[in-house]
Structures are given as C-alpha cells and as structure tokens.
Computed example of a mutant assay.
Amino acid sequence: MNVLEEWTALVCRELGVDPARVDRNAVLDLTRDVAHGVARPAAPLTAYLLGLAQGAGTAPDGAVERLSSLARDWEKMTAETPGDA
C-alpha cells in the first residue's frame, strides 16, 4: 500500500466513508484540470464543493466530468473577445 492509499483509507475511516465509494482517480483528475485550467487554489476548493454537493444529494450525474470540462475550457470561456470592455 502506498502513502496515498494509506492516507485515503485513514481519512475514509475518520469520516465514515466507504472507501469503495471513492473514485480517487476521478478526483485527482478533476483537481489537476482545475489547478492547471483555472488556478491552483481552486482545485481543493472545487473538490470540497463537489463533496458538499454529493453529500447533500444535489450534485448532478456526471458532475466530475462537467467540472473537469469547465476547468479545461476556463481560459477560453473567460478570455476577452474584441469589443469587450
């Protein structure tokens, strides 16, 4: 077991989360996309907000994929276009 697996198992025990319900790779991919596409501090915040939404039952199906897509497109979505001011 590597450090990431050990840490994930410990956190799951502490929070009462079934480790089988954790898609670690999806979360890591999401935070990578946000850190690179938006801003590094936005990555943990996004993961936290997603967790809140999941816990509240308000996260839509495909939320991780949608957020990753938004992060990858962030620069394009927020870039000024001619005539903006």
Rank of each mutant, 00 (worst) to 15 (best):
R72S: 04
R40N: 00
V11N: 09
V11D: 09
P19H: 08
T58R: 05
V38R: 01
S69L: 04
R24M: 13
T8Q: 11
R40T: 02
T31N: 00
A63E: 03
E14Y: 12
A47F: 03
A59K: 04
D18S: 07
T81E: 15
L52F: 01
V11H: 08
E75L: 09
V22A: 06
G16L: 08
E75W: 06
A63N: 03
N25A: 10
D23F: 06
P60S: 12
L49F: 08
G16S: 09
L50I: 08
E75Q: 12
V27R: 05
W7G: 04
K76W: 09
D73Q: 07
V11M: 13
R72C: 03
A39K: 13
L4W: 09
L28Q: 11
T46G: 05
P19D: 10
M1H: 14
A63M: 04
A9D: 05
T46V: 04
D23L: 07
D61S: 10
R32D: 11
C12N: 10
L67Y: 01
R13W: 12
G37L: 02
D23A: 10
G37W: 00
R32A: 12
T81S: 15
A47Q: 03
R40P: 04
Q54D: 10
G55A: 01
N2R: 14
T46F: 02
V64M: 03
N2K: 14
D33A: 10
A56C: 10
K76T: 12
V64D: 03
V3Y: 14
T31F: 00
H36M: 13
L50P: 04
L30Q: 05
A47I: 02
A26R: 11
